[in-house]
Nucleic acid binder design. Structure first.
Length: 875
DNA sequence: ATAGGGGTACCA
DNA sequence: TGGTACCCCTAT
């Protein structure tokens, strides 16, 4: 691949080829008797529902559109005919069909196209190739939906695996789709972010309460809330945290928090962050862990989770949380021993809880509700139930498989985790980076169906999946619970984590409030191994549909960047790639870092800066080798197993259900189906308002990378971090989108800020190296060359590292993946290298340094593996 | 329309 | 020659 073509403009060859056509080929048909294979199970599509706009079509109209270079494109699009010239191959194909025209000439994919693909996946969701193709925002020359799919498969094998767990062939180990944060490039970013309540809001809340009592819907009308896009449930949640006594006095179930939230009581705290933190720390507890639970379920039932992507929905809320959590866990997990010690469940849960809850609360209801709620519920219940017993183990295995996230994921995850652990904010960062995904993953399963139906599904859900759960939890029913949650406590709890489910039941189980609070990490840690794995899987799915349109981009301008957290996703796959083994982390300790970070992490919002990650944190990242390995192993195994079945359900179901009505206590909310999914958007105010408009349209991505990217921004690391957290998602998306632009430019010059950014990046890089001893010498020159592993490792490291920092900036890793970025990225890297980085050891620059993305992509090291995999290795 | 496997042209 | 990247085909 490379090179040559990549340049954007260039088109490959030919002038054209004509193209293919779509014509009828009907492939079809025929007998299908075969039974054999299962096909289609992938997780991917579902998610996105994407709505398309009506238009749909692309350019036909616009032939002219693209213009420029293009040449062929037009033609292509339109009709692709197959015939072709033969450029290349002469061979013709077999042509059984006599008719069959010739093959189309081979046309290399350009970076631009690849970038568009990424953007398209984020916009529409992985699997919605046609939609992507039709999206006017993207241009592909002469590509058919299948081509997109193939490209996706070949270029982002790790992502492909996540989304298509059933695929056994064409799986290479390359990495690439992971973002720095570990989330997948393809995911969409979620929009939600946590925005702490301002004092004004608190005042208004109190005033509103005084006037209207607990009629949040009324209170929320206050412009101040409208301005913040607060939902009534948000108010309730906040109220719960800020005014616990009143909350209780109002008849709500108080949160037990053991500790209660500190001070909050008295005063309104501030920001969500605080709350979150507080809760987490003090909190009560734990709620649940979705991940774990899921894992269980999954494990048992299905192995595969869904795709990673982010789809959005369900998870969205959770996702954020979840992912983060997961990550953390994973990371933390490091040592098994710890796990042993701790009850995994708890810990993990806690963590998760925190993030999740908070998000969920906020976010959830409206859009996601179902899913989120479900997930939460589930999690908690499950976790609780299970926790003692099975959980861990099971999960671990299960998850990994399920998720399949497996490898790649694992790697990423781990990184993520680490960083998470290390830096609190990151996790929290949900907003940005991390989280998203992981959480959601579980959801998928859970929710998948469930999501759709809040009520019914839930129970069934559990039932089906989790055996035990149902009983144990009782939550299973949750429906109510769920709903309730929404209205009631759930939300409220949400903030805290603990709150949620926990509430009553569940959390009793865990209840260890203390545990988590401070040591949230620990918990994670323990779990991490297992959990981590699980997480991965969990996360995986969702594609992305949402983001794009909805928030992110479209409005992007808005605050999306700030708003969205995005990210989600998970992991990447790459187990193979990763080869953590090589990576091994030496420092298990690192894992430990836990501490409160979590709390701090809270971040959510971009706005609220979190405590930046400090480099130190990064340092800590070092992954625990073991965990990594384990993960990896797991993942690998996993892959295979899952049929994928699950996946579909989730999304599909959702789709259907889309219009969910939730009945909150009194209220009912209806969510538009596609819409909600598609959009996450909660952006605006979800509530009654309509849901969001459809994304479709919005494709516009007006955003420019630059804008989003903090890159330019100055740079303190912290700031970066903060930014990162907040913006990450946004960035991410924006990046992709913007990337296109950049690419186009060709140079994509990193732009001015590059250097600065670079610095940040550097650290990450270093980190990678750490792991990578194995790779060792490898490749100096190019980043990756040598070993795929290295590269991978790098990715990992980067990923998490990146998250912290990069997010704000660009993640190198991403960059790599993403064509566009790569170039500038490389530039940055270089710069960075030159600069020294502070903490990190740094040493290794190499990897990152530059290398073209593509290069990176290809890892050489494992070709064989790949091969095998490609061809069927698997099988 | 998409998933997933197969084949092959291409490239290193 | 290995390994891929892209194209195709077929089952769903």
């Amino acid at each position: 691949m490379s090179s040559s073509v990549p340049s954007t403009s260039a088109q490959p060859f030919t002038s054209t080829f004509s193209f293919t056509a779509p014509f009828p080929v009907s492939q079809s048909s025929s007998s299908q008797s075969q039974s054999g294979k299962q096909r289609r199970v992938s997780l991917a599509l579902p998610s996105s529902p994407r709505v398309f706009p009506a238009w749909s079509f692309r350019d036909d109209t616009g032939l002219g559109v693209h213009s420029a270079d293009a040449e062929d494109e037009d033609e292509v699009k339109k009709g692709k005919m197959r015939k072709i010239a033969a450029d290349g191959d002469g061979a013709q194909p077999p042509a059984h069909l006599s008719d069959r025209p010739e093959k189309k000439p081979r046309k290399k994919w350009t970076m631009e196209e690849t970038q568009m693909l990424v953007a398209g996946c984020n916009k529409w969701g992985v699997g919605n190739w046609k939609s992507i193709l039709n999206d006017p925002d993207f241009r592909f020359d002469g590509r058919s939906p299948v081509d997109l799919k193939d490209r996706f498969r070949t270029y982002y094998p790790d992502a492909y695996r996540q989304h298509y767990p059933n695929a056994k062939t064409h799986l290479s180990t390359k990495v690439r789709s992971a973002l720095p944060d570990g989330s997948s490039i393809f995911e969409k970013t979620r929009s939600k972010k946590r925005r702490p309540f301002t004092e004004e809001e608190d005042r208004a809340l109190k005033a509103g309460y005084d006037k209207h009592g607990t009629v949040w819907a009324t209170i929320v009308k206050d412009p101040i809330f409208q301005a913040q896009n607060r939902r009534s449930t948000d108010l309730r949640d906040r109220f719960r945290n800020a005014f616990p006594d009143l909350y209780q006095a109002a008849g709500y179930k108080p949160r037990n928090t053991t500790k209660k939230r500190r001070d909050e009581l008295a005063q309104p705290m501030r920001a969500a962050t605080d709350d979150a933190l507080a809760s987490s720390s003090t909190g009560p507890v734990r709620r649940k862990r979705r991940h774990t639970d899921q894992g269980l379920f999954r494990g048992g039932t299905k192995s595969v989770p869904e795709s990673v992507n982010v789809s959005e929905d369900e998870d969205s809320s959770e996702d954020e949380d979840g992912p983060a959590t997961f990550l953390q866990e994973a990371v933390a997990s490091t040592p098994q021993t710890e796990e042993m010690l701790m009850s995994p469940d708890e810990d993990t849960k806690e963590v998760d809880m925190q993030t999740l809850d908070s998000f969920n609360d906020t976010l959830t209801i409206p859009d996601f509700i179902p899913s989120s709620s479900l997930s939460e519920m589930t999690d908690s219940s499950q976790s609780q139930t299970w926790s003692s017993g099975i959980e861990t183990p099971v999960h671990s295995s299960t998850w990994s498989t399920a998720t399949n996230a497996a490898s790649p994921t694992s790697s990423h995850i781990s990184t993520t985790d680490y960083f998470n652990s290390t830096s609190p904010f990151q996790r929290r960062g949900e907003s940005g980076p991390m989280i998203g995904k992981s959480a959601w993953v579980p959801q998928d399963w859970l929710s998948a169906n469930p999501r759709l139906d809040p009520s019914s599904s839930d129970s069934s859900y559990y039932g089906s999946f989790s055996p035990a759960p149902s009983s144990p939890f009782s939550f299973a029913h949750l429906n109510h619970g769920v709903l309730d949650r929404y209205d009631l406590f759930p939300t409220s709890y949400a903030h805290d984590f603990a709150s949620e489910v926990g509430m009553g039941d569940t959390h009793s189980t865990f209840s260890d409030p203390e545990m988590f609070p401070t040591s949230s990490f620990r918990g994670f840690t323990h779990h991490s191994n297992y959990a981590g794995d699980l997480i991965f899987g969990a996360r995986t799915h969702q594609p992305s549909a949402d983001y794009g349109p909805g928030f992110g981009f479209g409005s992007a301008g808005l605050g999306l960047s700030g708003m969205q957290p995005a990210l989600r996703t998970p992991a990447l796959p790459g187990i193979d790639e990763i080869e953590l083994g090589s990576i091994t982390l030496d420092d298990p300790d690192a894992a430990v870092p836990m501490e409160e970070t979590v709390d701090t992490a809270v971040p959510k919002d971009p706005t609220s800066p979190e405590p930046g990650l400090s480099l130190s944190e990064l340092e800590s990242y070092a992954l625990p080798p073991q965990s990594m390995e384990e993960i990896i192993g797991l993942t690998q195994d996993i892959h295979v197993t899952p049929p994928g079945t699950p996946q579909s359900h989730g999304r599909t179901a959702r789709m259907q259900q889309t219009g969910v009505h939730l009945h909150l206590h009194n209220r009912s909310i209806s969510v538009p189906p596609s819409e909600h999914r598609a959009y996450d958007p909660r952006m605006p105010a979800p509530q009654s308002q309509q849901m969001r408009s459809k994304p479709l349209v919005s494709p516009t991505r007006s955003l420019s990378l630059m804008d989003y990217l903090p890159l330019h921004a100055p740079a303190d690391q912290r700031s970066h971090a903060a930014a990162a957290s907040g913006d990450a998602s946004a960035l991410f998306t924006s990046l992709t989108q913007s990337a296109n632009e950049l690419w186009k430019d060709g140079s994509a010059a990193p732009a001015p800020g590059g250097a600065e950014n670079a610095n940040h990046d550097l650290p990450f890089l270093d980190l990678h190296y750490y792991y990578g001893p194995m790779s060792g010498g490898a490749i100096p020159g190019h980043a990756m060359d040598g070993a795929a592993t290295d590269a991978q490792a790098l990715d990992l490291a980067q990923s998490f590292a990146m998250q912290t920092k990069t997010l704000s900036q660009l993640p190198p890793s991403l960059a790599q993946h993403i064509p566009m970025f790569a170039s500038w990225q490389s530039a940055l890297n270089e710069a960075a290298q030159s600069q020294a980085q502070p903490r990190m050891v740094s040493a290794h620059q190499r990897g990152q340094s530059v290398v073209s993305p593509q290069d990176l992509l290809l890892t050489k090291g494992d070709n064989k593996r790949k091969r095998s995999s490609w061809d069927g290795g698997p099988r």
